[in-house]
Simulated scan of single mutants.
Amino acid sequence: METLAVFSLASQRASWLSARETTIASNVANANTPGYRAQDVTPFASVLQRLQLPMETTAPGHIKPESLAGAKLRVKPSDSWDVVYSGNSVNLEQEMLKAGEVGSAHALDVGVVRSFHQMLMNAVKG
C-alpha cells in the first residue's frame, strides 16, 4: 500500500521538530558555557521546497499555478543572537519561545494527522 502524502509529510515534520527540540535543549544546556554559539536547524520550509509538490487545480475557477509565478517572495534569515562578553550567544528567552513554538507545532501536527486518520477510517467504513 502506498504511503499517503499527508502521513509522509507529517512524519518528516515530526522528525524536523524532534531535531529542533534537541538543538534547543542543547542551547539551553550550554547557556553558561563560555564561547558556545547558539544553533538552530534549517527551517522546515526548505524541506517543503525540496519536495517540489505540484499545485493542482480541480475546477476551472481555481487559480492557476502559473499565475503565482510572478509573486517573488524572499525569506531572509534573521540572526538576532546577542553575544555576551564570554562569547556565548544563547538567549534563554529566545530559546524558551522556540521551545513553545515546537510544542505548538507538534500539537497542530498531531491534530491534523488524527483528523485525517478519522476521515480515512470513515471513508473505509462507509
Rank of each mutant, 00 (worst) to 15 (best):
T3M: 10
T3V: 08
F7W: 13
S8E: 13
S8I: 07
L9Y: 09
L9R: 12
Q12V: 12
A14S: 14
L17R: 02
S18C: 09
S18M: 14
E21H: 14
T22Q: 10
I24D: 04
I24E: 07
N27W: 06
N27F: 01
N27C: 01
A31M: 15
A31E: 10
T33S: 03
G35W: 01
R37A: 01
A38F: 00
Q39R: 05
Q39G: 00
Q39L: 00
T42C: 00
T42M: 02
S46A: 10
Q52M: 03
Q52K: 12
P54D: 13
E56T: 09
E56C: 02
T57R: 12
A59V: 00
P60K: 08
P60N: 11
G61A: 14
G61W: 13
H62Y: 10
H62M: 09
P65S: 05
E66D: 14
L68Q: 07
L68G: 08
A71G: 03
A71N: 11
K72W: 07
K72T: 12
R74K: 09
V75E: 15
P77H: 03
P77N: 06
W81S: 03
W81V: 02
V83N: 06
S86L: 02
N88K: 06
S89L: 02
S89M: 01
L92V: 15
L97H: 07
G100K: 05
G100E: 00
V102T: 11
S104I: 09
A107Q: 11
G111L: 09
G111V: 07
G111F: 06
V112E: 14
V112I: 15
R114V: 02
